[in-house]
Simulated assay, not measured.
Amino acid sequence: MNIILVAIGGFFGSILRYHISIKANKHLIGTWIANMLGSALLGFLYRLHFTNTLSDWSWMLLGVGFCGAFTTFSTFGNETLLLVLNKKYKHAITYVISSLVVSFLLVSVIFIAV
């Protein structure tokens, strides 16, 4: 059953991720937005699951499936590599640091606040 829940969540997460990519004209800001929103949502969902407010099936559907497909480390890595290959070092460093710091802060604040 968990595989089905993850698959359903992943289906919708990947569609929303694709939609954001199109709206951002396939620019790296779309990946950044998806990853930050996904981090915040995952932090919120994990906190609910951690406190037994969110059921295991909901965690599988939303946390593992939806957030897993919605956020995208592979695209983040590819975009960072392209920035480096195009010698846009400041952009690459800013992209990596802001992605890590902002997502960590979002998860931390949400986890503590909820």
Rank of each mutant, 00 (worst) to 15 (best):
S21P: 00
A34D: 05
I110S: 09
F11K: 03
F66N: 12
F111Q: 13
L41Q: 08
K23C: 11
L37V: 07
S39N: 03
I112L: 13
M36H: 11
K88Y: 06
L42A: 03
Y89K: 01
H91S: 15
V84P: 00
L48S: 04
I93Q: 04
H91L: 13
L81Q: 14
N78Y: 12
G13F: 05
I97S: 10
F111M: 15
V6T: 11
S39Q: 04
Y46W: 11
F73M: 06
L48A: 04
I3H: 13
F111E: 12
L16M: 04
I33C: 03
M36G: 01
W59C: 00
S58V: 00
L41R: 05
L16Y: 01
I4V: 15
N78E: 06
C67R: 03
S74V: 06
L37E: 00
T80E: 03
N86Y: 10
L61V: 07
A40L: 13
L5W: 13
N35C: 01
G63S: 03
W57T: 05
L85Q: 15
V101A: 12
S103P: 03
W32F: 14
N86K: 14
T72G: 02
L82Y: 12
G9N: 10
G65H: 08
I8T: 10
N25Q: 07
V64D: 01
F50R: 06
V6H: 07
G65I: 09
G30D: 04
I29W: 05
L28S: 08
T51R: 05
R17V: 07
S103K: 07
L62D: 10
F50V: 05
T51H: 06
Y18D: 10
G68M: 09
W32P: 09
H19T: 15
I33M: 01
G10H: 10
M60A: 14
H27K: 13
F76C: 00
N35L: 00
N25W: 01
I93V: 14
I3L: 15
L28C: 01
L82T: 15
G13E: 03
S74Y: 00
L62W: 14
M60K: 14
N78L: 13
G63R: 04
T53C: 03
S98C: 11
K87V: 08
G30F: 01
N2K: 14
V6G: 03
I22H: 08
D56Q: 13
S58R: 02
S108D: 12
T51N: 10
F50P: 01
H19I: 15
Y18A: 09
L54T: 00
Y89N: 04
G38C: 01
C67G: 06
G9I: 11
I15V: 12
M36F: 07
L48I: 05
K90G: 12
N86T: 15
L85H: 11
Y46D: 02
E79V: 06
C67M: 02
A7H: 02
L28Y: 14
V109W: 10
G10M: 11
G77N: 15
S99Q: 08
T51M: 09
V101E: 00
F76G: 05
L83Q: 07
S98A: 12
L5Y: 15
L54G: 02
W57E: 04
L81I: 13
L83W: 01
A24W: 10
A113C: 10
F73P: 12
R17D: 03
L106K: 08
F66A: 09
Y95M: 12
